[in-house]
Design a protein around this nucleic acid. Structure first.
Lengths: 211, 211
DNA sequence: CTCCCGCTAGAACGACCTCTCTAGAGAGAC
DNA sequence: GTCTCTCTAGAGAGGTCGTTCTAGCGGGAG
């Protein structure tokens, strides 16, 4: 964290704290300690205080998370096996980090959706962005538009849910089952698209990496 | 809440507050006001204080939630369509309650898994109980044992994830996609079980309600 | 050099936190 | 009646919360 601008250090420290302990339990003093910045600097960079820092942390984490989708799926020619592998990778990461690395957007949404309108809105924007970008990506991998969107919703819900179950049970089993489930769903969508290929968005063969 | 024992009122009020705003943001004074009980009574009934109340609330909510599984699925002869209907019912309930009615076990697990060992443990026990009971139920509906467990994991992860996404996006779309996804997965498991019915737990035809 | 200004630094404030404590209300035993 | 014991009742202690405030550091402009 040493070679960063203060504002960036604060945002990143907040993201990490949100992942581990949520919004309400994270104090500004704790944040200052974690970011190695005095309290005054936090309020200088973020006029809105703690809420403002959390919003920035959600946006930045959200942008980082969605980049993992092509990163994890591009190496797999077959979309279905790629999805199972992605869930397995998420499971390994979570186990290796002591069941702490849950997505901060999910944690915060569950916690403050009804009490912090700004953060609920930001979380909604981030999730909406995930769905849009993910739908575009899956469409590029051969799924017709409405199926791609459904698949992305299913993937995100299974992933967020797996984080929670795995965290409570301290087991990777939820990730394995969630991965198999989403894979089965996507497989059924791919099959439907192949049976009726009159849809618009199928530039390459279904289940194949884009050009 | 008038006709209840104080201890019960406190537990129920805590469950509701946990659902809406999580553990850290819920104060003992707020709880006392919501349960219409003085602070002293809370500490009389729950020697462990706030943490102790939360643990009781998680256990009681957990027990209530798992009862919904047979309640929602028994009416449907076909397990697969029953699952989709159950997700639709959850979606309707959430929309009708202003996107607040998320499961408290999920909310709290995401929030305090790393900071409150007792609550993490209780949440794990509750979730473990869901998996066991759900696996038994699905086995009774014709799924062989390992498939039934996978299906239950998939169902729970999709459900918890759908709560989060729906809450952030203020939309029932995540529930619809999650329901279709889990249904597709269970359908594939039912098909596998029908193709190779040498498993032990198939007292009746697959996808049929138990006797 | 001086002036300026973005930023650091942390003390201080009022509000609220969890939890403890004392006092007494109320029901049942005798 | 009186004694006993469970539970109610809420004030208060001690601490932490988010936020504000003033003071001053440090580097570029003139």
């Amino acid at each position: 964290m040493a070679g960063m601008r203060t504002e960036e250090r604060i945002t990143l420290a907040m993201a990490e704290l949100l992942r581990k302990q949520g919004y309400a339990a994270t104090g500004v003093n704790q944040l200052a300690r974690a970011a190695d910045a005095p309290t005054g600097s936090i309020y200088h960079h973020f006029k809105g205080g703690k809420r403002d820092v959390a919003a920035a942390a959600l946006r930045s984490s959200g942008a980082a998370y969605i980049q993992l989708l092509p990163l994890l799926l591009d190496p797999h020619d077959d979309l279905v096996t790629g999805i199972e592998a992605a869930f397995a990778a998420a499971a390994d990461d979570m186990r290796d980090t002591g069941w702490a690395n849950m997505c901060p957007v999910g944690t915060v949404t569950g916690e403050v959706a009804d009490t912090e309108p700004l953060l609920r809105e930001v979380a909604g924007e981030v999730m909406g962005g995930w769905v849009e970008e993910g739908t575009r990506y899956l469409a590029g991998r051969g799924l017709p538009e409405p199926a791609a969107r459904s698949a992305m919703y299913a993937l995100l819900t299974a992933l967020e849910g797996a984080f929670i179950l795995a965290r409570g049970l301290r087991s990777t089993d939820p990730f394995a089952a969630a991965g198999r489930s989403v894979a089965a769903y996507v497989a059924s969508l791919v099959e439907q698209a192949a049976d009726a290929p009159h849809a618009e968005a199928a530039p390459s063969a279904p289940g194949t990496a884009p050009a």
